[in-house]
Design a binder for these strands. Sequence first.
DNA 1: TTCCATTCTGGAACAACGTTCCAAATCTGT
DNA 2: ACAGATTTGGAACGTTGTTCCAGAATGGAA
Lengths: 223, 223
Amino acid sequence: MAKKASGGQQREKALSREQIIKAAIELLDSSGESGLTFRVLSERLATGAGAIYWHIANKNDLLTAACDAIIANAVELTATGDTPEEVIRALALGVFDAMDEHPWVGSTFTLSPGQSPVLRIVERIGQQVRVLGVPEDAQWATASALIAFILGVGGQNAANRQLARAKGFTRSDFLETVAAAWSQLDPEEYSFARSIAEPLRTHDDRADFLAGIEIILRGIRAK
Amino acid sequence: MAKKASGGQQREKALSREQIIKAAIELLDSSGESGLTFRVLSERLATGAGAIYWHIANKNDLLTAACDAIIANAVELTATGDTPEEVIRALALGVFDAMDEHPWVGSTFTLSPGQSPVLRIVERIGQQVRVLGVPEDAQWATASALIAFILGVGGQNAANRQLARAKGFTRSDFLETVAAAWSQLDPEEYSFARSIAEPLRTHDDRADFLAGIEIILRGIRAK
DNA sequence: TTCCATTCTGGAACAACGTTCCAAATCTGT
DNA sequence: ACAGATTTGGAACGTTGTTCCAGAATGGAA
């Protein structure tokens, strides 16, 4: 029923689930979320839509698998450190960088809650929360806060990138646009947004992300 | 060019942007995100798709406006308190409750980054961060962390609800499914997920959300 | 009033998408 | 070499967001 790993080659141009996922990732990276359709994926793989559906349940399945491949790699590479806090920092940054390199990942998490991609992060974070000595009845809320923050940042960044790409903007153009809009808001009602518009132009997403992680770690420690 | 607010009624059954948004919200609430199509919206409003497009740019515009209506209401109602921390708590809970009542809102934020709905939250949170005495060069990162967390939780919850609805599950069914899956994972590799599966069955999302806010507030204070 | 330019309506039409279906091609075991 | 199971490729289906446009409704000028 499933594939058989019997050494011999099955066919000249065998079509495997892994190949499909790999091609999907390439397509997502080069053309964004809207660039992955079964038509262009078929062309790229020199086959038809039906053949793809033999190996894959539906588009959600495909996107989840693609997301999982990226996250599994990121988690594997970066989950090291001397202290639990260092591990959390490294893991969070690893996931952030992976999402930065593959902007579509951020919006893919919501397609499969509780499944593989999220699960990997839950486990790694949860283990470190345990090592940190957080009491058992607070472990889930604590890990959950870290995860929500990481996925929240990822989702927002993904949204920014996607909008920028759709309008043919660069990231810089996008920030420029937001800054320009915010700096012209009513000074009374939107004083904060106005004051933040200028520094926003040149801010560093990664540094802000790390600062957020530090705040949360400090909050956990301060209990 | 735009509508004229000249007192007289324009037509028996005038079609206004507000009416369209209201009908869209009702549809989203009753049938979920996939329930809002221009076909059923047309029927509900007893008109055609073209008439709707006269008042609204596209579906993104419509969803953003619907999201903004919910968020504006939630922010207006709940942004009160004696201390800045209390205001943040109240605001966060207000947004959480709004997202809980309208699950589609959580996934709508990503459609319009830097625009109205996010902006409202940025402003309110940012003002309180300022009152808290956070130094100017850390205000954005701090506010950003709170916002990312709030939107992250909202997005995950929305994803859960959406999946549950699509499969005809209740929230309880969904948690049951996740708990069952997690409790059968490999005890070595997924020790945390296994240990958390049981309590997850009956946990309180709102309490966990509030616990997360407290962690972040503690982290800000502990600087 | 009568007219006309503007504003607004409704539904047909279009292109693109995810998905299904199935006859043909290919493989595997006997 | 044959038969049954697996895998392929592309046509076809239903649905979606969006566009297009003929014409109805409206309000001000003559």
